[in-house]
Design a binder for these strands. Structure first.
Lengths: 195, 195, 195, 195
DNA sequence: GCTTAATCGAGACGGTACGTCGCGTCTTGCA
DNA sequence: TGCAAGACGCGACGTACCGTCTCGATTAAGC
């Protein structure tokens, strides 16, 4: 992938690539996912449709690339408590899911991914991959410190947190509050009973 | 909607209505949500497109009516423990979300609802309404019995459970296991720490 | 064809039909055959592309219908001599081939007809049919009067006259002179030797 | 064109030229004129598109060069009679027009020539030039021998013969018979009346 | 032997048109 | 008024070519 691949013909123009990504972001913000057409993206980018289909196989891949390349950077959360760590990780999810362009795209984008078997298979390995890595590290540390006993179904917890944020914010349209991540993290670590 | 609307001319034919609903279910199952067009539904139902648009304002409403009218019947769960009650309620969600036609339609249907401000506003009041009523009852009983102390953010918990099931099963495509509802209910009531 | 066919749905709108025909004539005149696209015709006519494809299977059929429906009207030429009759019939061809829109369309149109086996088969039966009927009548009268002896290869003579006019005027771009039809008719009836 | 153009850099590769010509012939035969694209020719020839556009300005010129370079060789017909000479010259036209690749290309090629003012101007001077020279010689000999009296509109006669062959064989798709050239020559020299 | 410059295959580029499909509305005749 | 049928304007789809351009590599001729 990252190897040189030694292309033979004219190399692809990075400015065309960038213009397409930029146009995609803009149009998703202005007209939403369903309201954004490949034709319109090409037109806005000053590019031909071929230039798009040469790089991406369809709208879902393009939009995903344009909006969700932000790799989770920064150190893994280490607040001292499991709930605190998870809250911080959840905060990342909340930020990612509520960033304007991403929020506008998410429901439609996920629907398209879910509908295509090939894309569906990539959902976990690409969409949640970064968050998952960090979560595993958090759980291992908590297990070492004795705060956590027993196995934890990592994927299920991750799906729960992501699903909760997506459903609450993305679908239901509830406003994003500062406490949301904390509330969710508390529920997931301590449950609702002893609040 | 439910008003009598005493019509003056020829009354609507119930068989036409039923044929449309039936065709919708079939086509969603065969071709998925995005792959099902109003044109195709009308054709399969032996109906005109007008007969559809006279009753529903678009595909999302029609599909919702066709697939999610199953009102939560039966008594509210009462297993003796909060976790048990929630597990049973979650089991209902799992069943509803993983019923073949519903599973095929959900991602696309929710995306369409989320994209339209009018439909988006109806999401909670219609889509989650039945489950919410039952959940409130469960929480009240648990509060009375002393098992539950403090306020519970009902909508957030409901969104969490629904979001978890939707994300895990509907989007990620994880197989539905018998323990899924129990696992989720346990996490939500006791947290992951002391498993 | 001309029978009622008892259509069941909404009947086709004659104004749409006429607008398409009109737009086709205009655009052929303005931009030639190759420079006229179905897309542009639809746009100019204020119609959708479907409205065109519903009636014609492609550009060749549409252009043919738009430009060559002028049935050869009027009585069959009867000037007293075979050469005179043929001259008059040839004059019809010249007029038809040199009418501005037809002249602009002919080379490309014939090329498209020639390239498609289905259309190719229709060339003689539709394109030359009217002229052929009149020519047969002329030859029969000349045979009766004794001016013509022996069999005449009608199709070959018709192809010769049409080919001559098409090649001379349509392809070579020679100006249309008043004597052209007479010259051709003379050659075909008397030959060049004894001029 | 024919000037030496004393180049300074790398000279053009004759094998590239030949490969392009060969690929053009093949593809015209396989897919017809309209179905043959510059892109496909380059690909089949193992050449770049630039190598084609460096030598020809477009498909019409390339195809003309590839298929119609066969200069009329051999002595001018001299059979003893005008009709015989013309029959032989017409036979050349028939052969040229009915050679498989040429027949496949002719209608589309002529349409493209006719549509472009620049190419249109070259039609007579290049396409019919060889035949015209021979025809003039035939007519002069016939005038000298007294078989032909009066002026003959050479171009019109040539257009008539070429048009007749093109229309009859190329467009109408009539089979090429051995007598075709004779029949046409007879009509043009003696007319149809006294057959 | 070095430089210069045109050529080579490959393929990306912005465009334009293709023929198809679905949308939501409309217009028929019949019930 | 409802109904089946289907035409309507619109706009997007993904593909195919157009003729131009940009790569690195090659191949002579002029210095």
């Amino acid at each position: 992938m990252t190897t040189t691949e030694q292309a033979s013909g004219r190399p692809r123009d990075r400015r065309t690539h960038d213009a397409i990504i930029r146009a995609t972001e803009e149009l998703i913000l202005e007209h939403g996912y369903a309201g954004t057409s490949i034709t319109a993206i090409a037109s806005r980018a000053g590019a031909g449709k071929d230039a798009i289909y040469r790089r991406w196989s369809g709208k879902p891949e393009l939009v995903y690339d344009a909006l969700f390349t932000a790799t989770d950077v920064g150190p893994v959360p280490n607040t001292g408590t499991l709930a605190g760590d998870i809250a911080q990780l959840t905060e990342n999810l909340v930020e990612e899911f509520s960033e304007p362009a991403a929020a506008a795209a998410l429901p439609g984008l996920l629907a398209d991914f879910a509908a295509d078997p090939v894309l569906r298979a990539r959902l976990r390995s690409t969409f949640l991959a970064p968050a998952r890595g960090r979560m595993v590290e958090i759980f291992e540390r908590a297990a070492t410190s004795g705060e956590l006993t027993g196995d934890v179904p990592v994927d299920l917890i991750l799906d729960t947190l992501a699903g909760a944020v997506f459903f609450h914010v993305g679908l239901m349209g509830e406003p994003v509050t500062a406490e949301l991540a904390n509330e969710l993290a508390y529920v997931v670590t301590h449950g609702i009973g002893t609040r």
